[in-house]
Design a protein around this nucleic acid. Structure first.
Lengths: 201, 201
DNA sequence: AGTCGAGTAGACTGCACAGTCTATGTGCGC
DNA sequence: GCGCACATAGACTGTGCAGTCTACTCGACT
């Protein structure tokens, strides 16, 4: 009766469901995505989905949890001057967050996560703040070395991250005019701006 | 039969509907808000709503259109040094966008408007860019007066606006930890940071 | 008085969708 | 071989909701 059982894949249902859910939720949002479509996209029966997750919301949570780490950017410990390392960071940061997937992530976060406080807090702390902490640590070290003016490194990290993405992200989400995530010229302008603000007196 | 006809209010239905819609859409998003609840909140029959607007989407568009101007901030032409004027601007800007209503606006924009390109573009140009243009004009004048380093004023305006709201807005939307829109200390830190980046050589 | 525009209440239709249930098939360990 | 865990297809239920329709009521204007 089941002609499609050649596709039978007992392993990896969970993972495939989470991946499909990330796609569907990213494109249509929590409310817009349907459980039927997610199951279909995962190549899995709807009941199988409910064998793995008690509800649509639980699947959503798992999807978020599995992908928080994707938005965390660390400064590689490559050598190079502070300007080069910040340039590399800014480039990676922007490519991660301004990509199609990154924008969809942000849309999901703002549109839906803000109605799920505990999950929103998790993303805030483990996702967004994690990157800022890494950056702040790096900046703090540069300050003690005297390469940057001494000031609150967490604040400086906030400012830099904001400058790097805020405007282009909003533009990418609202205006149909697409944003190019890789834009060395723009990264360079922003890093220059930041370094001027924080150059030693 | 109609006991409630003492409430009969032939005037202002349109306005009341838009106001109620702004509330409901702001709280629940486009999909989450229901036409029945909007009509009830406006104190109006559902059919009356459909006498004024052909569809839920049309009501949403009108709601957005009526409120775009609310997020535009201009620099009053009060006298004062550049620092004082930027402080005043930053304070107004933050209070406007980080208030409960401002955050709800942003949530609506990102969550729903990005799926309605023409409306999104309108908000981008007439709402967000309008503020940045005003600020850029002000900065350009300050540059020609030699009060700021000469550079691209539009870029500088983008950076300042980003620094002023990005981080706190995301925090306000995700973390339950509420943001205080009026925070002179923080505005001051941000303006200082900006002025360092743009002080004349 | 009569007409008309604009309002009201509320029933109704049609649809999308979350979640359940049934009947069935498949592979693995015992 | 048997039972079991886990998969499948697909029918079914219940709900929420956009949008329509009916029957009615005002107030203003003529």
């Amino acid at each position: 009766m089941c002609a499609t059982l050649t596709d039978f894949q007992p392993q990896g249902c969970h993972r495939r469901l989470v991946e499909a859910a990330a796609q569907e939720f990213g494109r249509d949002g929590f409310r817009g995505a349907s459980v039927d479509r997610i199951a279909a996209a995962a190549g899995v029966a709807k009941q199988t989905l409910y064998n793995h997750f008690p509800s649509k919301e639980a699947l959503f949570e798992e999807t978020i949890r599995c992908h928080v780490r994707d938005i965390v950017v660390e400064l590689g410990d490559a050598q190079g001057g502070i300007r080069e390392r910040l340039l590399a960071f800014g480039d990676t940061f922007r490519q991660r967050l301004l990509s199609q997937g990154g924008l969809e992530w942000y849309r999901m976060m703002v549109g839906e996560l803000s109605r799920m406080p505990e999950l929103g807090g998790m993303v805030w702390h483990q996702g967004i703040l994690a990157t800022q902490r890494h950056l702040a640590d790096f900046l703090a070290a540069a300050m003690t070395r005297g390469e940057l003016r001494h000031d609150d490194p967490a604040f400086a990290a906030e400012m830099l991250c904001s400058m790097l993405i805020n405007s282009d992200r909003t533009r990418g989400l609202l205006a149909d005019d697409p944003v190019s995530p890789a834009d060395p010229q723009r990264v360079s302008s922003i890093i220059n701006c930041f370094l001027r603000a924080y150059r030693p007196d």
